[in-house]
Design a protein around this nucleic acid. Structure first.
Lengths: 198, 198
DNA sequence: CCCATGCCTTGATCCTCGTCAAGAAATCGG
DNA sequence: CCGATTTCTTGACGAGGATCAAGGCATGGG
């Protein structure tokens, strides 16, 4: 990777961290030295069901699809737009096999650090405990709102909400994937869309 | 409250905390001195939609129902069995009005500490930051599993799962409340139940 | 430029679940 | 123990979404 790209990447990571809490220089240097790059082509999998996920990823560029693979059909759980941290929290924290799979919907660049490194950081400097708490709390709040949306909105209302608040979802995710996310068939989503605009 | 009861209560709280992380004696004394009791009769509300929740509760005894009040019907979001910590995380952390209501399904005893006290604790001793992180992460994992159950299970499968893994839900929560939790009408839940046993 | 592929739409049919209505069973207070 | 209220069940009906099937429309590779 050319140097300029790497520098831009690290700026993005640092900004993402500092949106949560300011990071001491020593700890930033420590983290930088331990991040490793990884790239996925469109359609490649980052995680397959059953994998043990022992890495914390930062999605630098691209788009991931998180889905539950069931015998009958795939159920889309979420979509991960760069830039963002991402891991399978259950697998990462509890050392369990992943209950979902993750696929790149676009060519995707990531960095990652290992479980051991994350655990070691907590003993290294109070910043990491602080950051970890704020991060976990923020993740929790996002899930709380998501639960609220899924319970209170009908699929049609939910689609309208996403159109207004997360338009990149409608523009960058194929509609048949979005349909599965909303809990309906592609046919039904198509009819929702035609009812709204027509 | 008689002394013996208070002592039993505090043992319960301490055990709940130490299931997450061992608490230093100084911090335990600090917390104890700041907890206040509160009791609810069956049917009373702990939180109404729109309230600002600035307390972190510990549910000592009893059972709470958390629900989204919508114009047409109430949607049950969760049930809170003692002993457990509980608050509206969004309202508590972001100082926003509550998007749900909380009602006692049984006579319920609680203790609480205030937002200011929780915030102050983070500067007091590293234990609280550590505890806060582990707590938030644990809450997140529980929501992750809940999301999984709601996506992968049909209402009938979900009912069977709850029967096997959380039988107290079926025994202590009225079925029409459970139906709303599962996302079906009481009539449909009744038919699910008769299909299974018959 | 054209064909193949993947994605989206439209139509017809079936089936499940919500709704409305009534009645049975359980619970509670007096 | 009894009556009133709440909770649960059962039945009939209708609306809406899943399914099956086919056709349209992009997009990209040759």
């Amino acid at each position: 990777m050319p140097v300029e790209q790497a520098v831009g990447a690290w700026t993005t990571i640092r900004e993402t961290i500092e949106r949560i809490a300011p990071i001491p220089e020593s700890e930033w240097a420590y983290a930088c030295a331990r991040m490793r790059p990884l790239s996925l082509l469109k359609g490649q999998h980052l995680i397959r069901e059953g994998d043990r996920v022992d890495r914390l990823y930062f999605v630098m560029e691209g788009l991931l699809r998180v889905y539950y693979p069931t015998p009958e059909r795939e159920l889309n759980r979420s979509f991960v737009f760069a830039p963002r941290f991402f891991t399978n929290s259950i697998s990462f924290r509890e050392q369990l096999p992943s209950h979902y799979a993750v696929e790149a919907l676009e060519p995707t660049d990531l960095y990652y650090v290992t479980y051991e490194m994350v655990q070691a950081s907590y003993d290294r400097h109070p910043f990491w405990e602080h950051f970890g708490r704020l991060m976990a709390q923020q993740e929790f709040l996002q899930k709380e709102w998501k639960e609220w949306r899924f319970r209170r909105f009908s699929p049609a209302e939910h689609y309208q909400y996403l159109q207004e608040h997360v338009p990149r979802l409608i523009h960058r995710v194929p509609l048949y994937h979005l349909a599965s996310y909303l809990g309906v068939t592609p046919e039904t989503l198509s009819r929702i869309r035609s009812r709204r605009s027509g």
